[in-house]
């Protein structure tokens, strides 16, 4: 009898796995970055507005900051744009843009049209620096602490819920920095 029940037990396990798996299907589409908890790679990139003046990731050491990956070609970046505005107003930390796989003229036009809320933008037109950051789509948002460690990565457009979550996390990072 017990041996005959084995297939049923295996089957129930399979069904349980599939039920749980289906409920988490959306979350699993986002691939966790192995860079979490590790120092942000040292990148030196031109600024969008002043191409000759290079910006570096390590110059931000000492305070937490936000790095937001966007592109003028990216539909969802338009969707999250209002939250970028709110974030740079309310977070109290610099929100740096990472203009990815774009063209300068397009990016500048986009900013004129929708508003430039970022502190400044680093540009990566070829997309090589983005590989070092493990970027795989736009928009993506990184939180970096005062020691230059990547503490959080949000994948996809920021919405009401993830905005609140980001604000809490930024608060924690600021507390850590001021201690």
């Amino acid at each position: 009898m017990i041996r005959l029940l084995t297939p049923l037990v295996v089957f129930i396990g399979l069904i349980a796995l599939l039920i749980v798996g289906m409920q988490s299907a959306e979350e699993r589409k986002r691939v966790d970055s192995p860079l979490l908890g590790r120092p942000i790679p040292n990148l030196e990139l031109p600024r969008l507005h002043e191409p000759d003046n290079k910006a570096r990731t390590d110059e931000r050491l000492g305070e937490p900051w936000v790095l937001n990956v966007w592109g003028s070609w990216c539909q969802s970046c338009r969707v999250e744009h209002p939250y970028i505005l709110k974030l740079s107003e309310n977070a109290g930390v610099p929100v740096v843009g990472f203009n990815w796989k774009d063209e300068r003229a397009d990016a500048l036009r986009w900013l004129r049209q929708f508003g430039d809320a970022w502190a400044y933008h680093m540009v990566d037109f070829e997309g090589r620096a983005a590989i070092d950051l493990g970027v795989y789509g736009a928009p993506e948002t990184f939180l970096i602490d005062h020691r230059g460690i990547i503490r959080h990565k949000h994948i996809g457009p920021i919405d009401e819920q993830s905005y609140a979550d980001l604000m809490v996390r930024i608060g924690t990072l600021r507390d850590e920095a001021s201690q």
Binding site: M1, L4, L8, F11, I15, M22
Partner: peptide, 29 residues
């Protein structure tokens, strides 16, 4: 569509689960 997924899972539970239960009860021993 998760809703459809749940329906098929429920259906599988009835069909396969029922069949395996019957198997446990009636399979030649």
């Amino acid at each position: 569509d998760p809703e459809r997924g749940m329906f098929i899972l429920g259906f599988m539970v009835v069909v396969t689960g029922g069949a395996l239960l019957l198997y446990a009860l009636r399979a030649p021993r």
